[in-house]
Design a protein around this nucleic acid. Structure first.
Lengths: 365, 365
DNA sequence: AGGTATTCTGAAAACGATTTCATTCTACGC
DNA sequence: GCGTAGAATGAAATCGTTTTCAGAATACCT
């Protein structure tokens, strides 16, 4: 619906800013000197430096980044690719990355991949309108199909990059990841306290993270004799609706688990809503555990337990590894960050809860 | 916590892509012709056009955007400034804007302002590492302080821009906004069915949107004799926690309203959690209404009512107005988009609910 | 004082495209 | 057959920087 209130208008002059030449002229120096004032102030005497600065101020001089990038051969902008900005964890990561990168004097171009593999490949092409200088890939999805891997390798030939997530075997770029398998195992273990019918909500085609988390679930599930055939619930997407729909359908089919382990918090919330609408009690009837430890978990009812992982740490390590490449310093090919388990109302923590080694407690249903 | 798994590694060659000169040479034409093949294909004969294309393919030619931008005088990247990407509505808007802009062959640079006025001003400076060609401002916050307004005017001297939100008087750029005052009025009216103690959760310093919504609330509240002094609850921030804290404190002070109208959905959820932890029933004891109609509202318990506004419409209109400036076509200085009221479990819709004109129903408490 | 570092500066050549202007070639009308 | 309009192309200038190289000025040391 569109109400149009109006008033017409036309044209608009576009005005030029002063160039380095004009500054040089006004300051009575060469453009080389002005350039030095900008890039290597130490090389120019204090007197001229000040004079030039004054003139720059007067003329509202702004460096033309296109010209600089052209001459220099590269821009000063890191492109950050995030799986999906509707997932709050990625927004957290983005902010952390941005802070780290801007602290180093570079700009950030953030791209929301919307879980679309083709937009990943497109973003990696230097083809675009931008002048990227390096990449941070936090795609969540699998990178191991041939096309995608090739696109990354190609991008890495001309620019440094770092991946947060999946490590490609023999990849020459640094990878930062979390202990997903391990903590999925522990989370599942902790859920098994309530009974052996622990459902896994995940397994989205092409998702690397989902696969890792499934592994951990399976390891724990198999140790306790869970009927994984029955309790692994694949879903087509990873939003609230997907979790809600999947669980609703299973319950309607008469499948009520003792607990649900979801690969992200959105799914966990969707699942919890489905349970509640069916009159089931959380965690009394069904416990629920998410992944990501998103902010909203503390404000929904019941509050939801989740596996945490520090976006800030990930960003710090990733950017450091990126800069190591810029500066030809050595870097770690793989950094693995630890996670934490945060219990809230939706689960009943058992002895082996957080950091302690899991106790095998093979409760029968 | 940081486990370091390792393996050292050094260096990395950076390889150059082919330039237009090499393409021209390989195809036996001048660079002018190659450029024409790229930008004005009609001007070159079919035969050479094909030949050049083939060579470009062979040599993996990629246009150097810096060089093009330098020569052309501007880039092909629209910078989109969003108030905060932790607010899902802005993510929706971002995606819609991106789709519109990319459909026109331009790139998008999205900036998360994190509600920081200084980062707005910084982003408007051509100073940055980018080559913006135009701006879309969706800041939510007030633009009417002198510094900010100046920064916008200045940016607009060299580039087209469009604002989604506040209209600055006499501003020469197009503004797109929603009927916030009107629908806040209607939302409040609808809440007044439950009693006259309707609280307003908002009034964040410097927020334009909050101010508009407060106006609507006040209009409705005053019509019904609400003690606005008592029920306007200012808050310092606009996240879940802020809503939770404010409501918790008021309840502890013994102030329990009949309904709460929050200026966004995050606050509404925080508020609802606070109510529930105090054993209050929603909407039985207290009704809750948010603003933004974010996706999660359908999956929290109880589901939350909210005022909706189409991000897609806003994006379409905004980008159209931007392009009108590029192409020197006339455009509307102000476009006002309508909203909708979506009732869910957290409110009891009354007769004057949705689209119908409000009925004055002065219920006493 | 004389030689040698050291500091500071400028001239000029890139970087890779776009665009103006002029030129060549083809085709058409009379 | 000749003049001319139109199509297709190329040469060269230009955008605003960075950077190399060399030269001038100043300082230091014995």
């Amino acid at each position: 619906m569109l109400e149009q209130t109006s008033s017409m208008k036309a044209k608009g002059r576009r005005q030029q800013d002063a160039s380095i030449t004009e500054v040089a002229q006004a300051a009575g120096v060469s453009i080389a000197t002005v350039s030095r004032v900008i890039n290597q102030p130490d090389l120019v005497s204090a007197a001229t430096r000040e004079r030039v600065h004054a003139v720059m101020e007067d003329l509202h001089y702004r460096l033309n980044p296109a010209a600089a990038a052209l001459r220099r051969g590269h821009g000063k902008t890191i492109t950050v690719l995030a799986a999906s900005l509707t997932q709050p964890w990625y927004t957290k990561l983005m902010r952390a990355l941005k802070a780290e990168i801007e602290a180093r004097g570079f700009g950030v171009m953030q791209v929301d991949l919307e879980h679309d593999p083709s937009s990943l490949r497109k973003a990696l092409l230097p083809n675009s309108q931008q002048l990227p200088t390096g990449f941070v890939l936090a795609t969540g999805d699998s990178l191991s199909d041939i096309e995608t891997e090739l696109a990354i390798r190609q991008a890495h030939e001309s620019q440094p990059l770092v991946v947060i997530g999946q490590q490609i075997p023999d990849a020459p770029w640094p990878t930062v990841q979390f202990t997903d398998e391990e903590w999925s195992y522990r989370a599942t273990k902790s859920l098994l306290g309530a009974g052996t019918n622990v459902a896994f909500l995940g397994r989205i085609a092409g998702s690397y993270l989902s696969a890792e988390r499934l592994k951990g679930y399976l390891r724990a599930a198999n140790e306790s004799g869970v009927d994984t055939e029955r309790w692994v619930w694949p879903i087509p997407s990873r939003d609230f609706a997907s979790g809600f729909d999947a669980v609703t359908q299973r319950i309607n089919d008469g499948e009520v688990p003792n607990a649900i382990f979801a690969i992200n918090d959105e799914l966990a919330l969707g699942a919890s809503r489905a349970l509640l609408t069916h009159g089931l009690n959380i965690p009394g009837d069904v416990a629920v555990m998410g992944f990501g430890n998103t902010e909203f978990l503390d404000y929904v009812t019941p509050t939801l337990s989740s596996v945490d992982g520090s976006a800030i740490d990930a960003a710090r390590v990733a950017v450091e590894a990126l800069w190591a490449q810029f500066e030809d310093r050595p870097f770690d090919l793989l950094t693995v960050l630890d996670r934490t388990l945060v219990h809230r109302e939706s689960t009943v923590p058992i002895a082996d809860g957080d950091h302690k080694p899991p106790i095998h407690k093979n409760t029968k249903e």
